[in-house]
Design a protein around this nucleic acid. Structure first.
Lengths: 204, 204
DNA sequence: TTACAAACCAAGCGCTTGCTTGGTAATGTT
DNA sequence: AACATTACCAAGCAAGCGCTTGGTTTGTAA
């Protein structure tokens, strides 16, 4: 299934909002602002101005500012989980599945959903505890994908280190690319970067 | 040189403040609060209460709230650069030097200076641009330590991936341990974790 | 004892924040 | 055409923010 088909299907199920809807546009601008200035430094006036409405009008669409942050996170996880599931199912061997996961995560971090992914990593603490629990449940599904593949590779003997530790190291390493990797400025392509990661793990 | 000797020497040179001084205590509490709640959510009243003074009295020691954040970061980098320099010089081979660097960085992230290191990673954007430039200069010295060793390993043929990429992946991977690694709760020791990282790189 | 600076308090100022309110325009729906 | 619902505006409130001010206590040294 293509990435666009997946998005369409999620929109139809009301799991993520359409990019061209009022809600979708706000969430995209919110992700950008939250990443650039941080959640706390972004005011509801900033958010409203970014979509061309008054600050008070925001509260017709969302009850609180935090609800906007939560929506950004929830929709991003939903989309990426679906995309990664598809990418993985298309691969045969466990090595290829891992490669697909790494490549897909790099894409989600540095591609279209990059702003939202950065928010997911760096604005975690700004969520209320109740919301954290909620978002964490969605993350668990996502993480299970990784652990299944890594555990299989460990059983095959292709991996020496502990699957849990490897996944956590990869989470950090891949998330961190958002702070330095600039594919548009030439040099390393995303596939090239994926190669480097796989090589680092000794799996190439 | 022992870790304590290094600290004493830095205090003597006025490069970091003594842990039992008024300034030192405030910076330690600030690091803890900034990590726990984030810089923006931490008020000057929180900071003052943590050391038992009135909020206004803070501004006798620091001109602005941001100056406190900057001080936390600067002193932490200074200390850790010195510690890592010493750890590295004690090792002979390049493999051992890299191992020493990894172990030392894990210690700095998860040990005494852990709170401050987390602040350094997650509160970066809360610094004014002027301060960012200043802190960045200090970081460059620190990063040069890593690149020297990784480049040497690449030349030896022990490393397949690009040194710059490896360092950046390691930065992310090691920083991220702050979010999950809990040495006190048994299981993995710091040396054990270092082993896992070295094994992941195929250098064990 | 006196002199003086460093450390601190009590009070509050000016501003920004998230959010509310009461009403008006736009957009379907029948 | 009549109504109902959604989307929005203009204005502003209460609370919390970083920081200032004028004055008092504490520490140090001659």
């Amino acid at each position: 299934m293509s990435q666009d088909k997946i998005l369409q299907s999620l929109i139809a199920d009301n799991l993520v909002s359409a990019p061209d809807s009022a809600r979708g546009r706000l969430l995209r601008e919110a992700a950008r602002l939250f990443r650039d200035k941080g959640y706390e430094r972004t005011t509801v006036r900033d958010l409203a101005a970014a979509v061309g409405i008054q600050s008070g009008s925001l509260f017709h669409h969302f009850r609180t500012k935090e609800e906007i942050l939560k929506a950004v996170m929830v929709e991003t996880i939903r989309l990426n989980t679906a995309v990664m599931q598809a990418a993985m199912e298309a691969a045969d061997s466990n090595r290829d599945k891992l490669r697909a996961l790494i490549s897909a995560e790099l894409e989600s971090i540095n591609g279209q959903t990059g702003e939202a992914m950065a928010v997911l990593v760096f604005e975690w603490r700004s969520l209320s505890e109740a919301s954290q629990v909620e978002v964490l449940k969605l993350r668990d599904i996502y993480e299970a994908l990784w652990l299944d593949v890594l555990t299989a590779l460990k059983d095959e003997g292709a991996l020496v280190a502990d699957p849990f530790v490897v996944r956590r190291m990869l989470t950090g390493a891949l998330s961190w690319t958002v702070t330095w990797y600039r594919p548009e400025r030439g040099g390393l392509t995303r596939e090239g970067l994926t190669d480097q990661v796989v090589a680092m793990l000794g799996l190439s």
